[in-house]
Design a protein around this nucleic acid. Structure first.
Lengths: 221, 221
DNA sequence: TGTAAGTTAGTTAACGTTCACTAACTTGTA
DNA sequence: TACAAGTTAGTGAACGTTAACTAACTTACA
């Protein structure tokens, strides 16, 4: 450790991610410099967007120089995208796994809502990054019209799950893409409300509410 | 009555700015340079975010030089914020007006959904700007905890409407902020799906579906 | 003819990235 | 074991570019 420089410039962010500390890994092992860069970048990206954050600021938050960032990431864009890909795939897999379960559809809905909330609470900043800044990475949610490489994501996988439910006679037929958006919207807009400090506490405490609401939408059509 | 949730493409995107042309005013009268700047800025801001767009690009799109922009707007930030304020207040007023109606609560819900969709279709780019980039303007949605200047917006006004409905015994008591987020989330996430080309056509064609879903959530608790 | 609205040609600052260099480890082998 | 050689992860200074914005000048027209 050659550098005994300033530990923390500002913050006093006590409330945010208390358990594992700010160096929790997203791609890299906990505690490594790479993980600390990821965490610092994530926090800043969430607050001000990728374009609103200078590489120098990320470095300052970690306690290294901007040049050192490039020992770990090819570019700022790669850093930003690797973070987005991590949460995007994590959430996509989550939905896929629930969908693949051998369980009654009603239970799968509950599991989906519960697991989604748990994932959000597990790494709130990462989840918020996905929630607020996904549109910064158009190739990750490209519609199915233009290219025939269809990018999957939580919503399209959820739509597939609903399509299967339709085939099995669990719910009425309809536009499953739209329906998936509507039901996930219940959870996501509530998450957005939490991000904007309109609701408090872990998202999971509202999971039963979400479950009831989602099921109400799926049943009454 | 045709099923509005069919997977059919149904209709092409005729709704996008064909009628009034790209110089439609948001703050300024139609056809003026100021209006054309607003429209050009809006289109670019929606696509790539405020920080992702250079003043030069906006000017180029209008057919003037970047310096000329400053004859009409004090700064890029002011331009971006005036656009956001316009749609933010338009939507807030919309919700307020529906809430102030002297009509059965069930009808107000239908009106809210219908009018919200109509507002989205009326100026899709402006609506999308609000949907995707509101978080770029933290002071417009500041939570009620820190400052005592509570900024209102569509969701908080909707929450008030629900609070009133609770007092009048129309729906069960509960966290109205959360409930407002959940029900608006149904519409907003569907709008997001349209923005990402996962669903097609004017948002209004889905309004009856939204209405049913929103009511299902409000009733079954 | 005065002014609104445009131009050209800058300024200043910030950005992402690269450069040459270095201290501290790790490793292969005489 | 001693140590040359290589690797890792950092530094500080710069580079070329681009950004927002401004000053001074020009022009159309009510």
């Amino acid at each position: 450790m050659p550098n005994l420089l300033t530990d923390e410039p500002e913050s006093a962010d006590i409330a945010t991610d208390s358990v594992q500390g700010v160096s929790r890994g997203i791609t890299a092992p906990h505690g490594t410099t790479k993980a600390r860069i990821e965490r610092a970048a994530l926090t800043l990206f969430v607050e001000r967007g990728v374009d609103g954050v200078a590489v120098r600021e990320i470095a300052a938050k970690v306690g290294i120089t901007d040049a050192a960032i490039y020992r770990h990431f090819k570019s700022k864009a790669e850093l930003a995208e690797s973070l987005m890909l991590a949460i995007h795939e994590r959430l996509t897999d989550l939905v896929r796994e629930v969908g693949a379960k051998n369980a009654p559809f009603r239970d799968k809905v509950t599991d989906l809502v519960t697991d989604y909330c748990a994932a959000a609470d597990d790494d709130w900043d990462l989840f918020t990054y996905h929630l607020l800044h996904l549109h910064h990475f158009p190739h990750l949610f490209a519609g199915e019209s233009s290219s025939h490489v269809r990018r999957v994501g939580p919503i399209s996988v959820c739509a597939n799950m609903l399509k299967q439910a339709v085939e099995e006679g669990e719910i009425e037929p309809g536009n499953t893409q739209l329906l998936a958006s509507m039901v996930l919207g219940i959870v996501l807009q509530a998450a957005s409300a939490k991000a904007h400090l309109r609701v408090r506490g872990p998202l999971s405490i509202y999971a039963p509410e979400f479950d009831k609401a989602v099921w109400a939408v799926l049943r009454h059509r």
